[in-house]
């Protein structure tokens, strides 16, 4: 199987694009942090009137927020990356990968023509796709390594 050919044909919309949450541009950094912490979301897409205007990720938290308490009450629009690189629904997985490698980014939001969000393409989208290419040897057929035993007892 030519995997590269597969990725060139596979529309991004066929892939898992669920690795994101959305926040409103009117929110404060504190609001966004709380939402990310509660939902274990790593990548927040910032929307204004339903249109994508920026992206704010755990990397931004590391770089700009973690040791800066003054940042918390600022609007998210001050700290987000504005106008992030996006792709349309017509893009293929190979397009998305090329953009990620060239720009050295981890998230490529997929948007409609009107700017509304379809999903977020990440490296997990590709890894999940690859995992599905090998249904005959289920990827889950390997016991956990190192073979650590759980501290809790279980029977059977």
């Amino acid at each position: 199987m030519d995997l590269l050919a597969g990725l060139k044909q596979e529309s991004v919309t066929e892939m898992d694009l669920s690795d994101y949450c959305t926040v409103d541009a009117s929110a404060s950094v504190r609001d966004v942090l709380t939402q990310m912490q509660v939902t274990h979301c790593r990548n927040a897409l910032v929307l204004q009137e339903g249109k994508l205007v920026g992206i704010f990720t755990d990397r931004d938290v590391l770089m700009k927020v973690a040791d800066n308490k003054d940042a918390l009450d600022k609007p998210i629009t001050d700290l987000m990356t504005p106008d992030p690189v996006t792709l349309s629904k017509a893009a293929t997985a190979a397009d998305a990968l090329a953009v990620m490698a060239r720009k050295h980014i981890r998230n490529v939001p997929i948007v409609e023509d009107d700017g509304s969000v379809v999903g977020n393409f990440t490296h997990f989208s590709v890894l999940d796709f690859l995992a599905e290419q090998f249904p005959d040897i289920p990827l889950d057929s390997y016991p956990v390594y190192p073979r650590r035993f759980s501290r809790r007892r279980h029977g059977g």
């Binding site: 669920s18 929110a27 709380t34 509660v38 939902t39 016991p143 956990v144 759980s150």
Partner: peptide, 24 residues
């Protein structure tokens, strides 16, 4: 801010080591 908690596969994985034969 209203937050909808979305479940994922990970939410259904327990902390137990899965003990079936490799390849099962």
């Amino acid at each position: 801010m209203a937050t909808e908690i979305k479940l994922t596969r990970k939410d259904f994985m327990s902390d137990q080591t899965v003990r079936w034969c490799p390849g099962c």
